[in-house]
Amino acid sequence: MHSLLQKFGRLLVIWLPLGWLGIFFMLPLVEMVNVSLSEARRAVPPYNPAFQIGKDGISFQPVVDNYLLIYEYWEDYLWPAVNSVRLAFFSTLYCLLFAYPMAWWIARSNKSLQHILLVLILMPFWTSSLLRMYALIGLLNPNGVINDFLIWAGITVTPIQMMQTDFSIYSGMILTYLPLMILPLYASLVRLDNSVLEAAADLGAKNWDIFRTIILPLSMPGVIAGCLLVFIPAVGEFVIPALLGGPEQLMLGKVIWTEFFRNRDWPVAAAIAIILIAIIILPIVYARYQDKESIS
């Protein structure tokens, strides 16, 4: 009886996470592939599912028109994709540059302070990201807090245009994504044994050398995890550039949004998302997987 329970417990431990992944990750993905192979129509739902289990049994009638349409108008999708990748790339880079010293500082402070700082890092998640963006607008506006201060302090006479610039866009991106970068970096940096750093110093390495040859390579798993955690959602981001940026920021996320909401073409929206996953995200995940394989 007892061992049966244990066996059940073990099965639960293995299958619960798998089931979770299956239900909340794989199923939506499969459904998205299904939608991308369906035909759009004016109905509820606004597509004719390619794969269907209905009264007359199971049917599967995929159409590739949605992909062909994207292929035909590839220029309309390529430039937003380039914009998105550029935005995601620089957001990731800036997050990394800001997060690294912060994560280092947190990892090197004493244990109780570490926990407080980590809670503070997570704090922004308790307010909606949209609210935080409006708070940022309140800071950066021509008559916002920062400009008011600069004018009051006599540093500038006319307000500095900070909104609708790269500066405001990346401020918003960093504000939103920084915690996702800090946490994995922190996790890899606390693991760093102080005596290893001292050994390097003892063997003649100066600060920059220690960073380059010891700290950075040893924190690489954290760097990679952090970059993925920021890059992947940033590729799909469009609300932040729309709120904070000027007119030149057409993002792939917005293109998917317009396919979905304006053209009411759910299948094409799904097809773009699938292509995005196939072109940008799968290779990253695959390379990461290869990396892991070769290490172990």
């Binding site: 759009a40 057409l250 293109v255 304006r262 053209n263």
Partner: peptide
């Protein structure tokens, strides 16, 4: 109709993307 929707969206996206 759906076709016009697509034209409108394309024109609009090209304008907002600046090309």
């Amino acid at each position: 109709d759906a076709k016009t929707d697509r034209i409108v969206t394309r024109v609009w996206n090209r304008f907002s993307a600046g090309n």
